[in-house]
Amino acid sequence: MAYPALTVLDGWTLLAGLAALAWVFLLLGRGAFWRGDQRLPAAPAPARWPAVTAVVPARNEAEGIGACVRALLAQDYPGALAVIVVDDQSSDGTADLARAAARETGAETHFRVLSGAPLAKRWSGKLWAMQQGMEAAGEVPFLWFTDADIVHGPLVLRQLVAYAESRGLALTSLMVMLSCRGWWEKLLIPPFIFFFQKLYPFRWVNDPRRSAAGAAGGCMLVRRSVLDKAGGLAAMGAALIDDCTLAALLKPLGPIWLGLGTQSRSLRHYRHLGEIWQMVARSAYVQLRHSPWRLAAAVLGMLFLYALPVLGVIWGVCAAKPLLLGLGVLGSVLMMLSFWPTLRLYGRGARWLPTLPLAALLYTAMTVDSARRYYRGQGGAWKGRTYGPKEGGR
């Protein structure tokens, strides 16, 4: 029996239907990532508040280091808290600004600036700075790794430690609020958070029964004994995606937790598309393990999920195909429905919902550019350092 060949439009209808089905699966079957509901729960105070050392790797962070230091030293934490800023070969006065901020708070006895040594072989810059800070901290129960451009609310550390102690967590991490003021930030930052949650479903990360592991490098409270048991930061010294690599290293040894933090915010303002592009392109291909096949799959997957529903709507209207139009509308509605909680988190209105496909195409282009840079020996370029195919950093 002969079967009629599918026409081009029938083929598009099938693809639009599959894309809509994929969005149904994402809404129902990927840890409800899109809800954005993983927030740091309240926890009882521990019988004894453990000592914590905050380690801040800082390379040319003059713009935000003062506010960062003041916020760290102003933490309402009942236990002992020390703050170490590791000045990683800065040339913009980062160290002096950090010291001045500490003097303003009157808490200089709990603060020090460590002059970072030149980058060691087989280490990425940030991890090398974190390693030096960890060594200077000594045998403290908890290390709080946080970025130099982040300002934490006064209760953040208290809440992190209380929850970590109540659950026996090896790693407790918060995705802080990123800057979302300029037009490019409004277009690209909420999708960045959305894609991160899709890639690392927070509920799965927080489930000890699952292997999924993720973290956000701007705020990571680490139990020192578990980190030492895992081999320390030296076990991942060349990693460019330090946060998720650390999460994967620690989860086999103890539970971890990742959530959205609304009391901490990043001061880094992305004024132009190029700044966001650089931030993504430096590590996107690393996330794909430098695999051309994974790159191809990622590109096709992004086009399938974010471009096909929109094309289905356009083609369905132009070709007067009601089924194609309906499937395109269904896929587009499901896409926007999943994006809505993240958009609301960043205070954006419904008019930004239709911009998600555009943002997805831009992030796809950034990922392709990340691969191009890698093969040209420019992979991981950041703050004057590059990390090429055959070496950890230079």
Rank of each mutant, 00 (worst) to 15 (best):
V329I: 15
G331W: 00
S332F: 03
S332V: 01
V333D: 03
V333Q: 04
V333K: 01
L334K: 01
M335Y: 02
M335L: 10
M336E: 04
L337R: 15
L337N: 05
S338A: 15
F339K: 04
F339I: 01
W340G: 00
P341M: 13
P341H: 15
P341T: 12
L343V: 00
R344L: 09
R344V: 10
L345V: 02
Y346W: 04
Y346R: 05
G347E: 10
G347N: 09
G347I: 05
R348E: 03
G349T: 14
G349L: 08
A350E: 09
R351N: 05
R351F: 13
R351C: 10
L353N: 03
L353A: 10
L353F: 02
P354L: 09
T355I: 03
T355S: 15
T355H: 13
T355W: 15
L356D: 04
P357T: 12
P357S: 13
P357F: 10
P357V: 07
L358A: 13
L358P: 04
L358C: 09
L358T: 10
L358R: 07
L358W: 14
A359Q: 11
A359N: 11
A359W: 13
A360T: 04
A360R: 12
A360L: 06
L361C: 12
L361S: 10
L362R: 13
L362P: 08
L362E: 07
Y363W: 14
Y363S: 07
Y363F: 15
T364W: 07
A365N: 11
A365F: 14
A365T: 12
A365L: 15
M366V: 03
T367G: 06
S370P: 08
A371S: 09
A371Q: 08
R372W: 13
R372H: 10
R373G: 00
R373K: 14
R373M: 04
R373H: 11
Y375H: 13
Y375I: 04
Y375P: 00
Q378T: 03
Q378H: 11
G379H: 07
G379W: 06
